[in-house]
Nucleic acid binder design. Structure first.
Lengths: 348, 348
DNA sequence: GATGGGGATGGAACCGGTTCCCGAACCCTG
DNA sequence: CAGGGTTCGGGAACCGGTTCCATCCCCATC
């Protein structure tokens, strides 16, 4: 019902003219154009997307593949993507590809092959070689958000830089016994987490603190950070003066653990994270801010460029995180005592 | 490239026979069927979805409309839906319709009208009348998850029941001064929140505690609950002995606030939530468990029935939440002191 | 041996658009 | 006034499947 043929009939023109008037391509006089547009409006005409796709080869849809949607970073990126697509009139097909599940296999074997999209955005996917192959074989542009590959375009923050800034911040405050918390727990290392860890190790080494380098693994979630921190902080002899969380969720878990154990933050323990999570403010967490929503938007913009120019080579967009100072970090106790002693010792 | 015509040619049959063999409808001899299947496999044939949709009128896609994707409940429902769709070979088109945004208007005016889906799932959408109209006018089955309407099928938990159980639990422990925390802050009341509030009020009234009924509004988020609780608990004279959180996020916010203020949970303050949020365990939160993932799956199952039988009348699936006891609730201090006094007073 | 019904197959129409190609009309110039 | 370029519009092919319908064959039945 209500096909373009009806519009054409009502406007008194042929299908082809109606199509030209509606899509705005080819020569159509101003008079007939408005006549067609009026007819379409009065019939409430909406073109059939399948017919359009079939004829043009364009689906007006972007596929989004991500391993989680219930974690802060991913949900935010997804919202950013959705928002950007909405503005462009594009639909969003979501594929939730949890690592190691049969669903993930099906997505790569069946769903993607159907090519229901003009382009693909892969968020934090960490694809196996074969999975990456399949994505590239689709002959559709692919943009990754957070990825270690250079086979596709990539949008991400500079993770090493973020971890370096975080670590430097603590060192500048006078900390030496700094633990890197999170990553490589039950599962393998995620690339992001490894890059952040490397940034931490490099900075420690550069500051001649390499013998203080210490990594405490945990699930990269708030409960994960909490559990690992309870363990770490429970034993007073092993307790560091500062923690770099692999991300805010882990850092917040550590703060909650510290509070439960009666360890004061920041006077007895400094904590810094990476993200600027929705809850960071509530916990006064000092952190390196990234804005996943912007990364989603940037991914869409980049994908759009690829769609306009199929020969555009893979491009990298790397955003710089910024340090957001709150009150979860301070000079270490020992230093404060030392300073206090100094002050007392100083003749007035 | 690689159309069904090629498959047909390679198998030495006509397009129509190839189609029948591949879709499994109509008469095809066993021999030719396997021949066609082999040909398709060797060519790596994947049917064009747009062509299939155009010919059959089915898109093999389900649309999902929700106001948020970065909140726990919504993200979990989404994952449940995605998982269920994956099993059925259906695609998922996501529409993020934040209340009061221009994007939401566009979704209802443009995107939905394109009917890129065979059916629609609306999660916690709270549509305006006009929006509901539009959805129903699409002539596609609609299933709501959490909704106050009976115009569509609905999947949800019994919110009133949940709040009643939560409140009863506190009353049974001996609390009288019980506050309902959350809802109707900057925005309007959400229906869910109102239903939960009603359950609380009813229970209080039934227990002859109506003069103790007290509602403290807050944003329905963790920081929102935190901020409101800091306010509420900061003044010792206004401080209740127990809190029913409109949801776990708010309840957890209250626990965090209490801890910061040095108020012990549960001895000085009991807190109960509704959800069984991912973080509930970490905060030892007593709560009424709902499993949004199951609700998503149920919504898909229900939608599937509607697709199979277009005349199926709107149906309701209402799940019962269960009480999960952790250690955020206990007898109120006063009662414990009273009991202690009693014990001392009791002659041995 | 004629009749009929069901299984198997191919031809062609159809889903609803876009786009190529061609002809008509128009305007301007030489 | 002839000729050439530009604008406008229609017919028909095409995108890649599904499905209706006609045909043919085989076998059981009367």
């Amino acid at each position: 019902m209500g096909g373009i043929a009806d519009v054409a009939r009502l406007a008194g023109v042929s299908k082809s003219t109606a199509s030209r008037a509606l899509t705005g391509s080819g020569y159509v006089s101003e008079r007939t154009r408005t006549r067609v547009l009026d007819a379409a409006a009065s019939l409430g005409y909406v073109p059939s997307t399948s017919a359009v796709s079939l004829a043009t080869g364009r689906t007006q849809t972007v596929g989004v593949v991500m391993p989680y949607v219930n974690r802060w970073f991913f949900a935010e990126v997804l919202e950013g993507i959705q928002h950007a697509l909405l503005e462009r009139g594009l639909d969003l097909a979501l594929y939730d590809a949890k690592p190691g599940t049969p669903g993930r296999r099906r997505i790569f074997e069946h769903f993607l092959a159907r090519k229901r999209f003009d382009g693909l955005i892969a968020v934090g996917l960490e694809p196996e070689d074969e999975e990456l192959e399949r994505m590239l074989a689709l002959d559709r542009p692919v943009v990754s958000v957070v990825a270690a590959t250079s086979a596709t375009s990539v949008v991400s923050i500079d993770d090493g830089h973020a971890a370096r800034r975080a670590t430097e911040h603590l060192i500048d405050l006078g900390h030496r016994d700094i633990v890197f918390l999170g990553g490589r727990s039950t599962t393998h290392w995620a690339h992001v987490d490894r890059r952040r860890m490397s940034g931490y190790v490099e900075t420690m080494t550069d500051a001649a603190l390499s013998e203080h380098v210490r990594h405490v693994p945990s699930d990269v979630t708030c409960p994960g950070g909490y559990a690992a921190a309870v363990d770490l902080l429970g034993d007073a002899r092993r307790r560091p003066t500062a923690i770099v969380g692999v991300c805010d969720e882990v850092a917040i878990g550590a703060i909650i653990a510290a509070r439960r154990l009666g360890i004061r933050v920041p006077s007895e323990l400094s904590v810094v994270g990476i993200d600027d999570h929705e809850y960071a403010e509530m916990f006064s967490l000092t952190t390196l801010r990234q804005v996943p929503r912007e990364q989603g938007a940037a991914a869409v913009a980049l994908l759009e460029r690829h769609l306009a120019d199929p020969d555009l080579p893979p491009t990298e967009v790397r955003l710089k995180p910024t340090l957001v100072m709150r009150t979860s970090t301070a000079h270490p106790d020992s230093l404060q005592s030392a300073m206090a002693v100094d002050m007392r010792a100083t003749p007035r």
